[in-house]
């Protein structure tokens, strides 16, 4: 119970600062926000010539930031392996491991 209250207190404090921060953020949906700078301009204007993709998101995912995507697939691969290594335990080996852990 005390732990819950403590967590609540911390979260509330964080949320309060978060609200102050949100109030300071550039107003939502305005075209002159810092996010819409030369970076996105190039993606929007030149993506077709540079990558031959109609969808700019595709252009970014598969070309401009392709390495992110590569690591993303690796994340997926890692998770698959981790799932397998967790669930696929042949019975005999598992028994050994447990005994070792228990002793």
């Amino acid at each position: 119970m005390i732990k819950k209250l403590l967590v609540l207190l911390i979260v509330l404090a964080t949320a309060w600062v978060g609200l102050l921060a949100i109030a300071e953020l550039p107003p939502y949906g305005m075209p002159d926000n810092p996010v819409h700078n030369q970076v996105s301009e190039r993606y929007i204007n030149d993506a077709l010539e540079e990558t031959r993709a109609m969808n700019m998101v595709t252009a970014i995912v598969l070309d401009y930031r392709a390495y992110d995507t590569m690591f993303e697939t690796i994340v997926l691969f890692t998770a698959a392996l981790a799932v397998v290594i967790t669930l696929k335990t042949d019975k005999k080996e598992l028994g050994d491991g447990e005994e070792e852990g228990g002793r």
Binding site: V35, V39, S40, Y43, I44, V57, V61, T69, E72
Partner: peptide, 11 residues
Amino acid sequence: VNPLPSALMLT
């Protein structure tokens, strides 16, 4: 709209 966040969030 800015395409970059969408791409990031796919990841």
